[in-house]
Structure formats: structure tokens, C-alpha cells
Design a protein around this nucleic acid. Structure first.
Length: 181
DNA sequence: TAGACGATGACCT
DNA sequence: GGTCATCGTCTAG
């Protein structure tokens, strides 16, 4: 893919750079457009909280592949969560998408979510709203039906906090939440 | 092969 | 604020 500015070898830089970028999903023939407003950085084998910490497995193999790939995994046996691979091949750095702001296709998201509030303000919720499931594991984000194509908004500020729901390396403030104008 | 547990979310109080 | 559903993945034995 053409080098996106958020494909940075430094996963912290990459995570922050991804805020404000637009996601266009055409999965199942319905278009949903959203802007990324919350992410977490996972630094691969150097990061005890990363799925890649113990090395490559069948599940996390995508993270060890080319940057620009999508790593989708099932969480708690129920939800799907999606990451964007940003590190070079062999270095499993990835950015977990935790929250998006919907700008088009809210009706589709409401239908998929089965409710009209809290449509995409969590990792499992945003995948459901966008129609992302495990079949998208390994997909490349410059190709249909799921693209991260351009910066839509520029964050007025970015708040860094510890990551959510992890039990290791809990001190690293690698969760980033964008505030837009 | 069994058992533990998890990058969560919904619902109830 | 607390509890629990639910199952894939990994690890130990």
C-alpha cells in the first residue's frame, strides 16, 4: 500500500497518528463511515500486554506480517476486536481501535447493534457497527470492503491514559483519546 | 486433553 | 457499581 503517515515503526507515534483518520466499511453491501477517536498501542514481543508477547501463534500471525494488515481476534468468546498492524514484518506492533465516531451509515450500525446508543464507543461495539468479524483477519486496510483512507479530522488535543482491561504492563499510558473541535 | 482466563459488553440493582 | 455470559486460545501436564 502507499505509505500512510500512521504506518510508523514507533507504535506510539503510529497510534497517535491514526486518530482522526476515516474508516470506510462496505461490508455486506452497507456503507458505514467513521472517524477513529480512541486507540491503544501494543508493542509486540516487547510488550507483556500484547498478544504477540509470547511469539507468533496461528491466532496472532497477522501481526507479524506486513504493515497495513488487520488483526481481528475474538475477545471473551463473544466480541470481535480489530487492530491495525503498523510495525515492519516480523515486528508485531499493532494499534487496537477502541472507539470511532460514526459520520455515515448510522442506520446500518443501529441495525447491526440492535440499539441506537453506544454504537461504537468500545472495541467490540465498533467492530459490530462496522460489520467486522474474524473473516476480516489479515485484510489490508487500503482495499475494499474496509479502508482507512484519509484524515478526516485533526485532533484539537490527545489525552493519554493507561490501557484498559489488561493485567500486565498496566502502567504504560498507551491509550490515546482524541478530542475534536 | 483439560483447565484457566481474557485488549468486553449488557444488564440489573 | 457489580455481576455474569460465553468460547477461543494458550499452556501445562
Amino acid at each position: 500500500m502507499t505509505a500512510a503517515p500512521w504506518l510508523d515503526e514507533d507504535v506510539i507515534v503510529a497510534a497517535r497518528s491514526l486518530l482522526g483518520w476515516r474508516i470506510v466499511s462496505d461490508i455486506d453491501g452497507s456503507q458505514v463511515v467513521a472517524v477513529i477517536d480512541e486507540v491503544e498501542a501494543y508493542a509486540g514481543e516487547e510488550d507483556p500486554a500484547s498478544h504477540a508477547y509470547r511469539g507468533r501463534t496461528p491466532r496472532n500471525g497477522v501481526m507479524f506480517g506486513k504493515p497495513g494488515g488487520l488483526y481481528v481476534y475474538r475477545s471473551y468468546g463473544i466480541h470481535w476486536c480489530m487492530n491495525v498492524v503498523v510495525g515492519p514484518p516480523g515486528i508485531a506492533r499493532a494499534v487496537l481501535l477502541r472507539g470511532v465516531r460514526l459520520i455515515e451509515g448510522a442506520d446500518t450500525a443501529i441495525e447491526r447493534r440492535g440499539r441506537s446508543d453506544h454504537l461504537a464507543d468500545g472495541p467490540g461495539k465498533l467492530t459490530q457497527a462496522l460489520g467486522v468479524t474474524g473473516v476480516m483477519d489479515g485484510h489490508r486496510v487500503d482495499e475494499v470492503p474496509l479502508r482507512i483512507d484519509r484524515r478526516e479530522l485533526t485532533p484539537a488535543s490527545i489525552v493519554a491514559t493507561p490501557r484498559v482491561g489488561i493485567s500486565k504492563a498496566v502502567h504504560n499510558p498507551w491509550r490515546f483519546v482524541a478530542q475534536f473541535e
